[in-house]
Design a protein around this nucleic acid. Structure first.
Lengths: 212, 212
DNA sequence: GGCAAAATTAAACAATCGTTTAATTTAAAC
DNA sequence: GTTTAAATTAAACGATTGTTTAATTTTGCC
C-alpha cells in the first residue's frame, strides 16, 4: 500500500532526501542516463522504495520540478522599491541571479528536459514561468522608458539574452576556470554569481541606454 | 569483416545518410533516449549495420561530432576585409550566426553532450573550438579599441552572451511563436536567423560603445 | 561463370532498465 | 501485548538496451 501523494508539497524527510539526490544525478547525467538503482544506491535505500514513494521515475521528475519551480518566479516586490530606473534594473538583476542560484541543479534539469519533452505537464509550467518573468522584465523596461532613462527594447529578446548568458556561464565552468584565475578564498560558484551579476547589469544598462 | 574507419572524413553515402538521421534523433531526443534500433528503422537498415559501419553507438556520436565541428570555427578572413570597426563587428556576427545555422542539430548535440560527458575526446575538441572563437572575438574587440570606436570588454563574457543568446533563442521556439507572429511567407528558422543576427549586432554594439 | 570480399540479414547474446510481487520487519494504536 | 498499517526487503518480472554471431546475399574482379 504505497503512500499517496495527494499534495506534492507534503513530503517526508526521506522523500526530500531522495529528491535531493535524484536532482543532483539528473542534472549531472541527464534523466535518461540516471537509473533508479543509481538513485537508490546513493540514497542507501532499496530500489523498490522509489516506486513506493513516487510511483514512477517519470513522476519523480515531475514532483522534483513542481516542487522547486516557484523559486524561479520573479517577484516584483523585491525590486520595485527602487524609484530610480537604473537602480531598479540592477536590483532586478540581483534578484534574478539570486533566484536562479537558489537551485542550480533544478534549473539545469528544466532546460534539458523541458526541451526534450515538450509534451509533458512540466513543460507547460516552465513556459508559464518564462512568460511571467518576461512580463516582469517588460515592466522594468517600460518604467525606465517613462522616466526617460531607457529606450524601449523587446523584453523577449532581453530575457533570452539574460537566460542564455546565465546558462552558458554556468555550463562553461571548465573554460572559465582556464581563462580566469579565481581568488583562492572564493568558491567557483560564488565567483560565478558575482561576475554574472556584474556582467548582466552592464549589458542590460548598455542595451537599454544605447543611442543607435 | 567490418569496414575500418581510418579516416573519419571518408564516409560512404550510406554512412552519411545514417549520420544525418542519427544527428536529428540525437538532437531531438538526446543521445541516451535514442536507441540504435530507432536509427536503423528511420534509415531503413538492419540494426547490425550501425555496429558494422561505426563499431559502436558511442563511436557514431564521436564521428558525427568530429565530422561536423569544424563548421563552427570562426574564420577571420570572412570579416577582416572590413576596416570600419563597427562594420567588422557586424560582419563577424553574420558569419557567426551563419556558421551556427549551417548545422543546428549538431550544435545542440554538442552543448547537450559535451557537458554531460566531460571526459570524452569530443569535449576536448569543443573546448578548443570555444577557445579559438573567443580569441577571434578578442581580436575584433581590440581592433575597435585601437580605432577608438570601442571600449574594451572581456571577450569571454561577450562570447558567453553570444552563445547563450543563440542557444536560448533556438530552444525557445514555442515561446517565441507565442509572442510574435511570424510572416506567413517566412519559415521559423529563417525568422530566427534574421532576428537573432539583428539582436546580436545591436547588443554587441551597445556593450562595446557603452559609456558608464 | 567462378571466386573472394563486402554488405546485409535474422537471431540470439548478456546486461540493464523501470516496475511489481510477495514476504518480512518496523511502527503506531488501542 | 495484540493488532493493523506502513515501511522495507530480496527476488523476479518482461521489456529494451547495445552488441555479436553465423548464415546469406550482393558486389566487383579476373
Amino acid at each position: 500500500m504505497p503512500q499517496i501523494l495527494n499534495n506534492p508539497m507534503e513530503l517526508s524527510k526521506k522523500q526530500l532526501e531522495i529528491i535531493a539526490i535524484a536532482k543532483t544525478l539528473f542534472a549531472q547525467n541527464g534523466f535518461d542516463a540516471t537509473s533508479v538503482r543509481d538513485i537508490a544506491q546513493r540514497a542507501k535505500i532499496n530500489v523498490a522504495m522509489i516506486n513506493y514513494y513516487f510511483d514512477s521515475k517519470e513522476n519523480l521528475l515531475e514532483i522534483i520540478i513542481k516542487h522547486g519551480i516557484e523559486a524561479y518566479r520573479l517577484d516584483a516586490r523585491k525590486y520595485n522599491t527602487e524609484t530610480d530606473a537604473l537602480l531598479r534594473l540592477e536590483k532586478m538583476v540581483e534578484h534574478y541571479v539570486e533566484s536562479k542560484f537558489s537551485d542550480l541543479h533544478l534549473y539545469q534539469i528544466l532546460t534539458n528536459e523541458a526541451n526534450a519533452r515538450k509534451r509533458d505537464s512540466y513543460a507547460v509550467l516552465f513556459k508559464e514561468l518564462r512568460r511571467h518573468n518576461i512580463e516582469r522584465l517588460r515592466e522594468v523596461i517600460e518604467y525606465g522608458v517613462e522616466k526617460g532613462t531607457f529606450r524601449f527594447y523587446d523584453p523577449l529578446l532581453l530575457h533570452t539574452t539574460m537566460i542564455g548568458t546565465f546558462l552558458n556561464f554556468k555550463m562553461n565552468k571548465s573554460v572559465i576556470e582556464e581563462f580566469i584565475d579565481i581568488p583562492k578564498e572564493m568558491t567557483f560558484e560564488r565567483y560565478l554569481k558575482v561576475e554574472l551579476t556584474k556582467h548582466l547589469k552592464y549589458i542590460l544598462k548598455a542595451i537599454l541606454t544605447y543611442e543607435h
